[in-house]
Amino acid sequence: MEIAFSPCPNDTFVFHAAVHGLIPNVPKLDVTYADIDKTNYWAAEGKGPAIQKISYAALPYVLEEYALIPCGGALGRGCGPLLLTASKDQSPSHLTGKRVAVPSERSTAYLLFRLWAADMVPGGVGEIVVMPFHEIMPAVRDGEIDAGLVIHEARFTYQEFHLNMLVDLGNWWEEDTQLPIPLGAIIAHRSLNKEEITSWIRASVEYAWANPEASVDYVMQHAQELSPEVAKSHIDLYVNSFTADLGEDGMAAVASLLGRAGAEGLVPEFDLSLLRIGL
């Protein structure tokens, strides 16, 4: 069975056992390692594997064909994207009319940023520039971009680029809604057995927690030059109870984010009941 997820430590940690045949009743998996900005568009275009990791922000584009799997993804607290600048001016109004780099326009990070900016930046920001997330911090440091929206391990490394955090958008979201942050979702084509997929993904998560050393080599093989310490911090932050079970709080967070984004015209409006169909 074909599956696509990112090479980031949280994904390789979660899927290590399933990929390596350590879980009973898991079909042999053919893995494509792809950043979420690619899988977001693959799923929307009906391309790519039948099981994929995408951003929750991309769900409105794919729910007719794919079901949300209630485990294996990334959703939590204290793990949101950061908005960084090289400027010492830390007032939101500093961004009025400015160029901002984002890793994808179909990402939770982007939705959080646009919802925050609508409330906090007078007159709105200027040009939005999409670039690979690993290029954003150097571009902000070098003055090519006025501000950058960063995700993943950049939370732990942005100080190395002498950048300043203008806002932690995860903290803003949690204070505003009292809900966790929906980041990455696992989806499966609706022709597949969602219950079976949920079962073996959840078993892979539980195996990873019970045997944390088993996946170290696999994680570091794909960790994009991260140190073991940063990779572990990444896993500790993004793999949590919501990874094993989205639950009612997780579902409420997804519905709130996508409902608000739809009302702002940031994503297509859709029937929220599709989030639960097939679960």
Rank of each mutant, 00 (worst) to 15 (best):
A58Y: 04
A58E: 06
A58I: 00
L59Y: 00
L59I: 01
L59K: 02
P60R: 02
P60G: 03
P60A: 06
P60M: 04
P60L: 01
Y61L: 11
Y61G: 02
Y61E: 06
L63T: 04
L63V: 07
L63R: 04
L63H: 03
E64C: 00
E65H: 07
E65G: 10
E65C: 01
Y66D: 01
Y66V: 02
Y66E: 04
A67L: 01
L68D: 04
I69F: 04
I69K: 03
P70L: 01
P70F: 09
P70T: 00
P70N: 04
P70A: 00
C71N: 07
G72V: 03
G72W: 12
G73Y: 13
A74V: 14
A74Y: 12
A74L: 12
A74Q: 13
A74H: 10
A74P: 02
A74R: 13
L75P: 05
L75H: 07
G76W: 15
G76M: 14
R77I: 07
R77N: 13
R77Q: 11
R77D: 10
G78F: 12
G78Y: 11
G78D: 13
G78I: 08
G78N: 10
G78S: 14
C79A: 15
G80I: 12
G80Y: 12
P81L: 13
P81W: 14
P81S: 14
L82Y: 15
L82R: 11
L82D: 03
L82A: 06
L83P: 02
L83K: 09
L83S: 08
T85C: 07
T85R: 10
T85N: 05
A86G: 11
A86I: 05
S87Q: 06
S87K: 14
S87T: 14
K88G: 02
Q90W: 00
Q90S: 06
S91K: 14
S91N: 08
S91H: 08
S91W: 05
P92I: 07
P92W: 14
P92N: 09
S93Q: 12
S93H: 13
H94S: 13
H94M: 15
H94W: 12
H94F: 14
L95C: 11
L95R: 15
T96F: 08
T96E: 13
G97P: 15
K98A: 14
R99E: 15
R99G: 13
V100Q: 12
V100P: 14
A101V: 08
V102Q: 03
P103Q: 10
S104H: 07
S104W: 06
E105M: 06
R106E: 04
R106W: 09
R106C: 02
S107H: 02
S107N: 06
S107T: 03
S107W: 01
T108F: 09
A109E: 03
A109K: 05
Y110P: 00
Y110R: 02
L111S: 03
L111R: 03
L111N: 01
L111E: 01
L111Q: 02
L112C: 12
L112N: 08
L112R: 11
L112S: 08
F113N: 11
